[in-house]
Simulated scan of single mutants.
Amino acid sequence: MPTFYRFDGFRIEVRSRDHSPPHFHMIGPDFHALIEICTLQVIRGTYTRRALAEVVDWAAGQTEALMAE
C-alpha cells in the first residue's frame, strides 16, 4: 500500500479503491486505525493517544490532499 506520510514510529496510508466513507489508515507497530478524512474521527481500530493526537493535528491541514489521493 502506498505510504502517504511517515511519522516517527508510524505511517499514514491512503488506499484509493477502499470502501466508504473516505478515510486513511494510521499504521504503527502495535496499532492500525481507520480515520475518516472529513471528520477526523476514528472509524475503527486501535491506536495510541499520542499517535492519534499527532495525526489529527497533521490531517487538519491535509484534508484536500488526502481526498485527492
Results as ranks from 00 to 15, higher is better:
residue 29 P to G: 06
residue 32 H to W: 11
residue 42 V to A: 02
residue 41 Q to Y: 06
residue 66 L to R: 07
residue 37 I to W: 05
residue 48 T to C: 02
residue 36 E to V: 04
residue 22 P to L: 14
residue 67 M to Q: 12
residue 48 T to G: 04
residue 4 F to Q: 09
residue 35 I to A: 01
residue 32 H to C: 11
residue 57 D to P: 05
residue 65 A to L: 01
residue 63 T to Y: 07
residue 51 A to H: 06
residue 19 H to A: 02
residue 66 L to E: 09
residue 4 F to R: 06
residue 6 R to T: 05
residue 23 H to P: 11
residue 66 L to T: 05
residue 63 T to E: 13
residue 48 T to M: 01
residue 33 A to K: 00
residue 40 L to Y: 00
residue 65 A to D: 03
residue 35 I to G: 01
residue 68 A to Q: 04
residue 28 G to T: 02
residue 18 D to E: 12
residue 47 Y to V: 06
residue 52 L to V: 05
residue 60 A to H: 10
residue 64 E to P: 09
residue 63 T to W: 06
residue 66 L to W: 11
residue 68 A to H: 07
residue 14 V to D: 08
residue 1 M to D: 13
residue 4 F to D: 03
residue 46 T to D: 13
residue 14 V to P: 04
residue 3 T to K: 11
residue 67 M to N: 15
residue 13 E to R: 14
residue 53 A to C: 14
residue 13 E to A: 13
residue 33 A to H: 00
residue 45 G to C: 06
residue 30 D to C: 12
residue 22 P to D: 15
residue 67 M to F: 13
residue 45 G to H: 09
residue 28 G to Q: 02
residue 7 F to V: 01
residue 4 F to A: 07
residue 20 S to Y: 08
residue 41 Q to F: 05
residue 16 S to N: 13
residue 28 G to E: 00
residue 33 A to W: 00
residue 9 G to D: 03
residue 29 P to A: 08
residue 62 Q to I: 06
residue 12 I to T: 00
residue 44 R to N: 13
residue 31 F to E: 03
residue 64 E to K: 10
residue 16 S to R: 14
residue 68 A to W: 11
residue 60 A to M: 10
residue 57 D to R: 12
residue 27 I to H: 07
residue 42 V to Q: 01
residue 34 L to Q: 12
residue 37 I to F: 03
residue 14 V to H: 11
residue 37 I to H: 01
residue 12 I to E: 01
residue 20 S to I: 10
residue 55 V to F: 02
residue 31 F to V: 03
residue 60 A to G: 12
residue 3 T to F: 03
residue 16 S to W: 15
residue 27 I to V: 11
residue 19 H to C: 06
residue 62 Q to K: 10
residue 28 G to L: 02
residue 52 L to E: 05
residue 32 H to I: 09
residue 53 A to K: 13
